[in-house]
Design a protein around this nucleic acid. Structure first.
Lengths: 346, 346
DNA sequence: CATATTGACTTAAACGATTAACCTATATAA
DNA sequence: TTATATAGGTTAATCGTTTAAGTCAATATG
């Protein structure tokens, strides 16, 4: 089937070509394309068939230049390999596409310079807005462009539109569950406290804990599978019955270390995570954790973004989405507090 | 620090603004921006400071319209939640960015209509090329636009530039390893044979196997964690000593099923996978599998793409990257198969 | 009947860059 | 001396749209 080979030797058909083909002016063609102006049914048909015939596809660059709207947004992420992000990215992209926006992806690999450059590039490309998950606590936008709409996702920042999960509630749910299972010696691996997302989980957890249990030790660790020296050391002390990790990746890394040292999970040490990343129910033991509504997060982010694009002067808005605990098998119930915790070899 | 607020009430500074500020023509400004034409050092300095002063940032839409180059490419993926893709996406994006190209992300969620729409949209946006990992064996580009440069990644297609791993070698390595561990009753869960990537693993495996072992059963399964009814049934037959899965996700799903049915892996049934996705060493038991050079794949893809962009008439080119086996603990050694005067060393 | 109003188009001016073509003074060559 | 490069600019056309403004007949209004 020889598809409409446009007769011009090279390149796309333009409005002008279509107009000539249909025997009308370019304006008329534009009017029928945009359903604006007023054109007779007769002419409309002609134009439409001319469009089809020439395989016309509008030039978005030209459109953008004329209208000022590029129909694109940007998405800046720290690291797609972190299993938290793929689903987020997917939902942002899909939501954007169903709003007739294309999305530029920027994966900074956690590099601040890449983040800065990325933002700059996106602005050059004239994105109408940016969905941003900050790699650090640096606030690049103050510097570059305060007038590009931005919504910050997952790691809320003051003076922005934010969308994130109810980390405080998540922390509380974890505390309740641990308490109800009878744990009272706790090791806490908290995330980078400069991120609200980490700080709030910690706060929620500690608040709910109150005096009902003791935090024997606490270390701060990055949100990744690389555990710091102190974290590893703490884990092997075996002076706690449960370890609360700032997210699932840390939790999984911890399980690995414990296994390597023949410490049984959850028999000897229980573990909880946060995020409910896709693999948290594949790992042994399946992880008790807090489920974030990843794909809603993404959808909501583009909602917020579109709101701000349409109304740049609207007041800042934060939406926080509900979370839930998902109980699997990484926490064991402790019957008697004092008696049971001995050392039993493999 | 009140940053260069351009005096015009709204919007970005333009070439014209800079020119006025520097007291020269727009052409001159353009020349210094592009290091073309000839301008005196004197004027060059003036212009540069004017650029800085007004916070000028070029309008890529205008540039694109004039030059025909959008400096963008598209990337079409089936599903970011499949752990095979995030690293790929990341490396493509990074490679593109270091070539001064921004990338549009399209995640089709395995939907063919989304794929068709996505491709069409990308063409509308005037991407200079597309990195495509097909969701199906449909060949959309024939229909839409044969003149947009495309490189197909991971699932080679005839008449395209392709980049993929040496699946045949991967299959062979697996066969060798299984044989050397003394297995001779094999269950094979192969991937969708309409994908070359699946067909070649199978072929490599079977060819290397020869008559040295028996494939007791074979089923075809999609490249996902959802196992078909027949697959599940076969797994529970327990008439094989090793199951060869078409990729790691299938392998992991299989382990899960087996565990649920109290069948020990690898004690009773060994398992191998393919891909070496990030979690294959976290799962219990850690998976023996074939490692694909994901990030090289991405890099190579944009190399190929740039080659074709620069020279659209170049002959089609396929690059296939080397793979290696990574041996973990999901395959156990079988001591004595039969009491032959065998060549098995302990 | 003269005058508005409307419907159906067309003309042409933007949008912001790039770049071929042109201009002018000064240096070089013959 | 006159002819000729060359360096350092400027002018204006152009890319493909959108859209305000204009044209002109046909119809409606009073």
């Amino acid at each position: 089937m020889s598809r409409s080979k446009s007769r011009k030797f090279s390149g796309k058909a333009t409005l002008r070509d279509v107009a000539r083909e249909a025997g009308v002016s370019v304006a008329t063609v534009s009017y029928v394309l945009n359903n604006t102006g007023s054109v007779s049914d007769q002419v409309r048909k002609q134009v439409k068939s001319a469009i089809k015939l020439r395989g016309y596809v509008p030039n978005l660059s030209a459109q953008a230049m004329r209208t000022g709207r590029t129909k694109t947004i940007g998405m800046i992420l720290p690291d797609l390999r972190n299993p938290f992000f793929p689903e987020l990215a997917q939902s942002v992209e899909n939501a954007a596409r169903s709003n007739d926006l294309a999305v530029f992806l920027v994966d900074t690999q956690e590099s601040q310079t890449a983040e800065a450059e990325g933002i700059f590039k996106l602005i050059q490309y004239g994105v109408e807005g940016i969905v941003w998950c900050p790699s650090s606590d640096m606030d690049y936008f103050k510097e570059y462009s305060a007038d590009t709409p931005v919504v910050v996702i997952d790691r809320p920042l003051p003076n922005y539109d934010n969308v994130y999960s109810d980390y405080i509630k998540g922390g509380k749910l974890l505390a309740q569950h641990i308490l109800s299972e009878g744990h009272c010696k706790i090791g806490l691996i908290s995330g980078p406290q400069s991120f609200e997302s980490a700080a709030q989980r910690r706060r929620g957890f500690l608040d709910e804990l109150g005096n009902s249990a003791e935090v024997v030790w606490e270390v701060e660790n990055s949100f990744s599978m690389e555990l710091g020296d102190e974290t590893r050391a703490r884990l092997l002390q075996q002076d706690v019955s449960v370890v609360v990790a700032a997210n699932d990746m840390i939790a999984i890394a911890a399980i690995k270390i414990l296994n390597q040292n023949k410490i049984k999970v959850p028999e000897t040490i229980s573990i909880v995570g946060f995020d409910d990343i896709p693999w948290s129910d594949i790992v042994q033991p399946p992880l008790t954790t807090i489920k974030q509504p990843l794909s809603e997060l993404g959808k909501e982010a583009v909602n917020l973004l579109m709101r701000r694009i349409e109304n740049p002067e609207a007041s800042k808005k934060s939406v926080v989405l509900d979370v839930d605990i998902v109980i699997r098998q990484s926490v064991r119930m402790i019957e008697t507090v004092d008696n049971e915790t001995g050392l039993e070899s493999t």
